[in-house]
């Protein structure tokens, strides 16, 4: 439905998004996780066609969207709800009506539709309130209702729960389930891994504008010692060398694509080396092989079928895993 090829965005010469390939399928919820400043919001704005990329293209239904006119047409199918959404200085209902007018969706029952959209996120009682007097949580819910009202084919949500209370979270969960059934493509950005896993079918980690898939097995809750630069961090039975400027509680994420598998220990630049037996071999559904290796705790690795055959890996094979310190992402 929505995708990107060789997508790059730069601000003042600095590359903030660098995504060689991304595909978001209908009826799926994809979560982008990453710390603040990792490029989540910029990527969402590019996918929402409200910002033009420095290089590369965003695809809609497999077709590249490159001209201003094409972007304008594409915006009819995609809607973005920003982390700090903006409502215009009118009432809540008028804000939703503006959205209908903007898309030229004339509907004799516009008022009914507006109330229904507000009701979907549990804020129908706010219809006649002045939008600029809402609390942050109410604002986020009204903005979500405004987006739902437009019935987009793809919905992009930037930190949808950042100001949410419990009611708002359960309303959001219901909405996401319904959107899944309606075959809507959803992509949400979050800096909370728990939220990402709760709401999405696929989690991608974003660091310095680059994407990497994340599997729950390759995530480790750690406490980073104070200081900057390379540090050794204990994560359960494993010890990782990590390069980061942050400290305190954090999550380490290792992309299954960033792990090198070998049958003998490597003399290499990779600072993190583990050994263990292969406990699972399966097809990942995208033409690659998913290995689970028990190195004291299970680690998931993705390799090509050719590499699997060449290394002669099967269940029980003892393998060595190498991970560069730079490939251990801190979220």
């Amino acid at each position: 439905m929505l995708g990107a090829r060789d997508l790059r965005q730069r601000y003042a010469g600095r590359t903030v998004v660098d995504v060689p390939s991304l595909d978001l399928e209908p009826g799926t919820v994809t979560a982008l996780v990453g710390p603040n400043g990792s490029g989540k919001s910029t990527l969402l704005r590019l996918l929402a066609f409200v910002e033009s990329p420095a290089e590369g293209t965003v695809l809609l239904r497999g077709r590249p969207v490159q001209t201003a006119a094409a972007r304008r047409a594409a915006r009819r199918d995609v809607t973005l709800v920003e982390q700090h959404p903006l409502l215009f200085a009118m009432t809540v209902a008028e804000n939703l009506r503006y959205a209908l007018t903007a898309r030229r969706q004339r509907d004799p029952d516009a008022a009914g539709r507006i109330l229904q959209a507000l009701d979907r996120v549990g804020v129908a009682d706010l219809a006649n309130r002045a939008a600029r007097q809402l609390s942050a949580g109410e604002l986020q819910r009204v903005a979500l209702a405004r987006a739902l009202l437009l019935r987009p084919r793809a919905l992009l949500l930037d930190e949808p729960a950042s100001a949410a209370d419990r009611g708002a979270r359960s309303a959001l969960a219901e909405v996401l389930t319904a959107l899944h059934k309606e075959e809507v493509t959803v992509c949400l950005a979050s800096h909370q891994l728990e939220d990402a896993y709760r709401w999405s079918s696929r989690v991608l980690a974003l660091a310095d504008g680059r994407l990497a898939p994340v599997t729950p097995e390759n995530l480790f809750r750690v406490t980073l010692p104070p200081g900057g630069g390379p540090r050794v961090v204990r994560a359960g039975p494993l010890e990782f060398l990590v390069v980061t400027e942050t400290s305190g509680p954090a999550t380490l994420a290792i992309s299954p694509d960033d792990i090198i598998v070998s049958t003998a220990a490597l003399q290499s630049s990779a600072r993190n080396q583990f050994a263990g037996g292969v406990v699972a071999v399966s097809d990942d559904g995208h033409g690659h092989v998913r290995l689970v290796v028990d190195v004291g705790t299970p680690l998931v690795v993705r390799i090509t079928p050719a590499a699997l055959a060449e290394l002669g890996i099967s269940l029980g094979t003892r393998v060595h895993l190498s991970v560069k310190a730079m490939a251990v992402r801190v979220i």
């Binding site: 704005r45 929402a48 066609f49 409200v50 915006r75 009819r76 995609v78 809607t79 973005l80 920003e82 700090h84 959404p85 903006l86 215009f88 503006y98 959205a99 903007a102 898309r103 030229r104 405004r146 437009l150």
Partner: peptide, 11 residues
Amino acid sequence: RVRRTALTLGA
């Protein structure tokens, strides 16, 4: 955000 919001709503 005013411009972006108007754009993403399809204006």
